[in-house]
Each structure stands twice: as structure tokens, then as C-alpha cells.
Design a protein around this nucleic acid. Sequence first.
RNA 1: GGCCCGUUGGAGAAGUGGUUUAACUCACCAGCCUUUCACGCUGGCAUGCACGGGUUCGAAUCCCGUACGGGUCACCA
Length: 496
Amino acid sequence: MCPAYYNGYANATTTGGTIMKPRVRYAPSPTGHLHIGNARTALFNYLFAKKKGGSFIIRIEDTDMARNIEEGTQSQLAQLAWLGIDWDESIDKEGARGPYRQLERLDIYKEYGEKLLDAGRAYKCYCTEEELAEERRQQKARGETRLHYSRKCLHGPERDGPYAIRFLVFQDAEYTFFDMIKGEVTFKSEDVGDFVIMKQNGIPTYNFACAVDDALMEITHVLRGEDHITNTPRQLMILDELGFDRPVYGHMPLIVNMEGKKLSKRDESIIQFIEQYRALGFLPEAMFNFIALLGWSPAADEEIFSRDELVERFDEDRLASAPATFDTGKLHYVNNRHMKRLSREEVLALCRPFLEEAGIGKEKDEAWLESLVAVFHDRLSYGKEIVRHYEEFFSAPFVIEGEALDFLRQDGVKELLVSLREKIHQADTLDAKTLKTLIKETGKETNMKGKMLFMPVRIAVSGSMKGPDLPEMMNLLGRETLLERLETTLGKIRMP
RNA sequence: GGCCCGUUGGAGAAGUGGUUUAACUCACCAGCCUUUCACGCUGGCAUGCACGGGUUCGAAUCCCGUACGGGUCACCA
């Protein structure tokens, strides 16, 4: 993009010709746990700040008293920290521009609200919720397309009683800004009705607090979800009237599900909260990696990166403007790739809680657990999946059917299995290495090799033509189960 | 309904007017490797960029319209 163009709409990036270090923020409201969409907003702001050597600030937007929840703030911060997103200034890390919790900044909003009142850019509104609802109802009934406040309090007399403060929107003004992602965006003031900046309870509304804080905290760039794009003109109006510089805005496309719908918290098809992924045994660096791919793409032939690599490669010009589809399959792939980088011990540590929870390997020793993990390491998409893999091969009902059964009905298979059964029965010790030797010996004796040797054994002990490494799997199964399954299999192929 | 945004293969997605005969990744298929299965490696997979006009010597890329999808119009953030 053209720098001159850029500066024509915002001067926050430069002052007196020197480039300032960017200051960006993530501003969650503590109404719940960290949602995947919010995590992405935080992540891109973080990436942008780190890449440019700037500061990443977390501001708590707790102005909705009704929806704030007790643990909301701590939960948000804890999950961000887990992802590996750390911050330079926030409620637990005071900087020069605090406080960082909006309810602790009420005096500030009050002061600026009065300033606007005095300047005639805002007015007191005594309307009740019921009156406003009735007004809207009538507008709709009349078929009006723009449902804006009627301004009936604009010229009304001052009176007693609670009031809200409304911003007086200019007539016939245009608000144009250069969006880092969308390009030039223009809104006409006539599309914006007089909006409340201070609620009756003395607490600011989102748009007001947000604009004032961005200015006072010297935020230079605001990267946020596209659902905020229509809030931008309102914030611009406030900024302009208060004489503040505008930050540069960038509106990121929404995250949608496979059906193209916005990720709603009620959507059952996708797990929505970071905490839930953590609980399933996903890796924080993999989540970081995956989320970075939601609406952004690297200029490389590779998509698997560490956090540092992502910071290094981040380029805001590569942020997409089309919706980002949340693809669970891709998430599994990314996590799998990151898990492959882990040592066996690390994977076991990740899987252990799930194994314990499922009661797997209770009577087995540590070596057995290690082997179990080793056998599935490569194909694990997340920690808890070890349970599913285990059940599939070890505890599910043993059945052989279809193609697998047909394979066993070939000549020589029966003799092969009988011979192997004897060897397993007689062996002193059974470990993976021994089992491999036994299979080889059986092959020699019965004159079977390659697929004709291994596949019948695989099917006979697992029921499946696919699965983990055969000797390792047989070792985990143990002598008793092997003999049982071999017996069952032989019984099956005797009766065609 | 007004306003705003978007639309490239089975899926994600590059591409910002001319080495694009449209990267790369996932999935899928084939081959190689492994005495089995995976892993890994190699190759295949859009005669076309929602549709219709236009601008241009030249458009997936710029403009206009249509269709479809989404967002937003609160004393929620």
C-alpha cells in the first residue's frame, strides 16, 4: 500500500517524521472463557507488536455489569498465557497508561462525557427503555429502513431524573478511514443514529470507552474482528470531536464453520473455547500455529511453525479479507505435526492423564505405557486420542469381517497361524523383538513371506488390515490375548 | 429493509494488470520405501478463478450490475 495514502487517513504511526513503535491492544470483556475468535484477535495483535518491536496491551472492558462473570478476567489471561501470548501492560503489569480495567477509569469517561456535553456534541436523553422500544416498533411499522433515535430529547428542557448521554452525530458528514485489511472504507453519518455514550448508571458504552481508551493509551493500531467495522465510524466521531489522533484500523474477516456460518458460541459442530482444546490434550504451540492460519497465510511452502517463526514471518499485508473457515481436520493435522516434534517422554506426559482417566494400563508397568504411546505417537492428533486408538485395537470387541476375512481364507493361512500359535505358546519370554523373530521363523517353516506372511498375522490378532507396527502391537496385547484371538480366528476360517 | 464486507479445486488457501501452462497445504488416488501397517518420499488431482457486461494491447487481479453468503443497525461488547 502507498504510504502517503496511509498517512492521509491516520497520523498515529508517525510523529514529526519518526516512526513510533506500535502499541496494540486486546480488549476482552470478562463475560466468559477465551473463545477461539478472541484468541485469534489477541494472537494477531501480539504477532504484529512482536514483529515490529512494539507493545501488546490487554485492557479489560468490563462495562457490562450484567454480563461480567466472576472468573472471566483471570480465565482469559490464563488461557492467553497458556497459548504463549504474553503482554507488556495489563491489570497485573501496570504501565504508564493504566489503569487497565475500565471500571477503574470511570472518572475519565465522566470527564470526557461532560466535555462533549459542554461542547454541544452530546446531549442528555431521558428516554426510558420502554419509550425507545416503542419508538423502534413504530418506525418499523411505518416501514422505515433506518432505525435511528428520534432525537426527541435533543431540544427538550433539562429536568430531574436519570439520563443517558447521547452523542450528537453530524448531518451530512462522511467518515473515511484506511483499513489495513479492507482498504478504504467510508460511512455516511446519516447511517449512524445518535448513540449513547454514557448509560444512565454512569458507565460508558463500549464505543465511547473504547475510543477514549485507545486514545489515552496511545494505541496506534487496532486489529479486530470484522463485526466491529460498523463501530468504527462511531469511534472516529468521538476521537475527532475530542481532538485525538485516530489509530490505524484493520478489520479481520470472521471465522466461519464448514457451512460458512459465523462461529457462534452455540455451534455444536466446532469446539469453541481454548480451554476445551487444552483439556483434550492439544499443544499450545500447535494451537498458536493453527490460529495464526485463520485469516492469514505465510509466504512459504510450509505451514508448520513455532511461535518465534510465526513472529518472524508475520506480515500484516498477508491478512486475508475473506472469511476464514475453521477446519477441524486441519487443526488435527497441525497438532499432529507438532506432536511429532515431541520426545516419547513428552508424549507420554501429555497422554498420561487421559490414560489414567480411562483406566488404561492400570495393572501394567511403565514400560508398557511407554510402548503404547510410542506405537501411536506418529498418528496422534491430540492427547486424548490415545484412548480412542487404544480402544480400537485393544479393548474393542474382536471381529473379523469383509475383506480381512476373505484374506484369511487363502491357502496356507491356517497352517501359518497354527504354527505361530504354537511358537507363542512355547516361548519363554515375549517382547516385540522376540515376536518379530517368531513371525520370521513361522514364515520360513510355512514358506510364506511379505504380505502373505504379515497380513494374516495382523488380521488374526487385530481384526484389521491396518494398524500400528505389528510386533509392537502384539507385545502390547500380551500372550494371553494373542492366543485367544488366534484361537478365535482359526475357528472362523475353519467354517467358510 | 438500509449500510458494510466477501465469493479461486473435494477442503483450507496463494494471487494487489503481463515468466499463471492458477503456488502451497489438507484430503484423496498411484508408485517407491518398509518381508506387514504406518511414517517418509515421488507423482496425479481447477481447460478455469460466482454470473453478466465494461476498461485495457493484456484481467482471477480495475470498474459497473446481478446472484449467493456473511456482518451490523442496543443505555452488549
